[in-house]
Each structure stands twice: as structure tokens, then as C-alpha cells.
């Protein structure tokens, strides 16, 4: 970059850096502020020089903080703490505002995505221990049916009679050729 920097440039030359910078949407900040997630080992001077040389953004001031993460795990799993994240907020000489959020999420198939997540959540709950003992819609209807049977309002009949079939096995197989061969 040939233009003159309004600050003193560092002398450490980095040819092939291998880290990523994440720009964050910060509507609560004034437009001249931009916030980034940076690696833990970068400092304010690094980020100022990086933004100036790579992106041509002149920073006036830099603030930084390290956000410690919550402890996760527990309950038969090991406790661990994810790595902390470092966030830097720079004040620039020119304002910048993020483009608007998309309103239509069709390209990302949000409906399918949400439905799949809901299904996965249900399946996860069902696979938990004692999941069948928890309150469900089946339990309610079963209780109603049992109450009607006990009070004598309904009489119990086997299912093939309730279906109106002639015998127990009649009509189970619509296609007679698909019936399994039973050795007599």
C-alpha cells in the first residue's frame, strides 16, 4: 500500500498469515465503529496495521476484550471450557453500515431446515430413558378409553371384530399372492 499511514506502522513483516477475521453486525454501535472476532494472539496494533494494509481501512482507535466462555459438559460428561474469544472494536475514519438482513430465506431452505431440526429434537426426546412414561397425547386417550370400558359404556371387542372382519386373518392381506406361505 503506497499511501501514507496516519500512524506508525509496525516493522514485523508477515507474508503468509493463516488466520481469519470475522466482521460482526453491530447495529448498536455508531456507523464509524466495526467489531471483529480475532485470534487470541493478535493485539491492537496488529489489527490496525492489518486493516490498513489489507483492506485499506484507517482505524482511529481500537478497543479489545476477551470473552471467556461458559463451562460446558457435566452429567456423565467431562466438564470443559471452550476457548475464549477475542473481540476488537475499531473506530474508523469513514462510516460503514452493514447491508440489510435478507427477508426471504428460501435460498437457504429455512422451512426444511427448521422442520428437520424439530424432527431431530423429537427423536432425541424419544430416545431418552423413561421417555414413554412422560406425559403424552397417547396417555390421555388411553385413559379415556379405559375409563369408558370400566364404567361399562363400551364393551371390549377384539380388533378384528371391531373392524368388521369375518375372521381374524381375513382381509389382512389385500393381495392374496403376497400372503406368506405357511407350512401346514
Amino acid at each position: 500500500m503506497s499511501r501514507l499511514a496516519p500512524f506508525r506502522i509496525g516493522r514485523k513483516q508477515v507474508y503468509l498469515p493463516n488466520f481469519t477475521l470475522t466482521l460482526l453486525r453491530t447495529p448498536h454501535l455508531p456507523p464509524t465503529f466495526a467489531s471483529f472476532i480475532t485470534p487470541l494472539n493478535t493485539n491492537k496494533l496488529d489489527i490496525r496495521d492489518y486493516l490498513f494494509h489489507v483492506y485499506g481501512v484507517t482505524c482511529v482507535r481500537v478497543r479489545s476484550y476477551i470473552q471467556q466462555q461458559r463451562v460446558r459438559g457435566g452429567k456423565r460428561r467431562k466438564w470443559y471450557r471452550p476457548r475464549a474469544t477475542k473481540r476488537m472494536t475499531v473506530q474508523m475514519d469513514k462510516p460503514f453500515v452493514w447491508p440489510e438482513e435478507p427477508t426471504d430465506f428460501e435460498p437457504w431452505s429455512k422451512e426444511t431446515f427448521d422442520a428437520a431440526h424439530e424432527e431431530q429434537r423429537k427423536a432425541r426426546e424419544q430416545s431418552r430413558p423413561m421417555a414413554d412414561l412422560k406425559d403424552s397425547t397417547d396417555r390421555k386417550t388411553l385413559a379415556e378409553q379405559a375409563e369408558q370400558l370400566l364404567s361399562g359404556k363400551e364393551k371390549w371387542r377384539p380388533q378384528w371384530q371391531a373392524d368388521g372382519r369375518v375372521s381374524r386373518s381375513a382381509g389382512l392381506f389385500r393381495n392374496p399372492e403376497s400372503r406368506p406361505h405357511v407350512r401346514m
Partner: peptide
């Protein structure tokens, strides 16, 4: 890679869907 990291963070924040 910086662009992809920025968009991945924003996609997760918006809960946009696949991608």
C-alpha cells in the same frame, strides 16, 4: 476465508437455514 467466516457467523445468528 474472512468473507466466509463473516457470513457463517451471520448465518448462524440469523438462523437462516442450510449453507
Amino acid at each position: 476465508r474472512n468473507r466466509l467466516a463473516t457470513e457463517a457467523y451471520e448465518r448462524r445468528r440469523l438462523n437462516a437455514g442450510y449453507g
